[in-house]
Design a binder for these strands. Sequence first.
DNA 1: TCGGTATATTACTAAGTGGCTATATTGCTG
DNA 2: CAGCAATATAGCCACTTAGTAATATACCGA
Lengths: 111, 111
Amino acid sequence: MTDQLSLTLAALADPTRRAMLLRLAAGAATVTELGAPFALSQPAISKHIKVLETAGLISRSRAAQFRPCILETAKLAELDSFMAHFRAITEGQLDQLETYLAQIQSTGETK
Amino acid sequence: MTDQLSLTLAALADPTRRAMLLRLAAGAATVTELGAPFALSQPAISKHIKVLETAGLISRSRAAQFRPCILETAKLAELDSFMAHFRAITEGQLDQLETYLAQIQSTGETK
DNA sequence: TCGGTATATTACTAAGTGGCTATATTGCTG
DNA sequence: CAGCAATATAGCCACTTAGTAATATACCGA
């Protein structure tokens, strides 16, 4: 599991880390702020953040004793472009459903 | 990691399994067909497929001694809707870049 | 310089994952 | 029914992961 996309997905495969990212979508936050919502020890929070950083999903600066985190969207965009491979199919099925709905509506049939 | 989205992401966090899904995006396939491209033992292939099935990303029917797999898009759509939370931000950044490009083009400035 | 706050690192444990070989199951087909 | 092809299961191993408590580091303010 050495490729970037796997790294991204593995980092996202945890509700705590996803919640952190959603929090960061609203703007930068410190480690303590990011960890506040969770009943986890401080090292556990640091670890989660390190996973996100290693995956390139966040980056960090330094301000006094704070290490504020900000969201990095590049890897998310990469995942998004992977998802696009399936989006056509999903939408295709949606179209089929819509066609079907339009059809029963026009013919008055219920089955 | 008990929630559905984590399950989906963990299943996707493996290049072999992603390749299988991409293959299935082109249509149904048997276990052997799905495993053919990989230098893995047959049990390893079965295991990967089971992970995908458990995550609800594929489903399987039964035809003689074959167990053909088909792609299930519901969980992918769910992931897609999670990604939407970030898409606005990514596109926002893109817009900023476009605005910037439009600006330097109209003013003739390079910085 | 000392104490406090923010964060990281270390060392440990329990559980999960991905791979293997060997074996079992299931259903055609001869 | 015998044998083969497709697939699943069991048992094992090496490695990773998510959590913990304890400790270390870094920086601010009095």
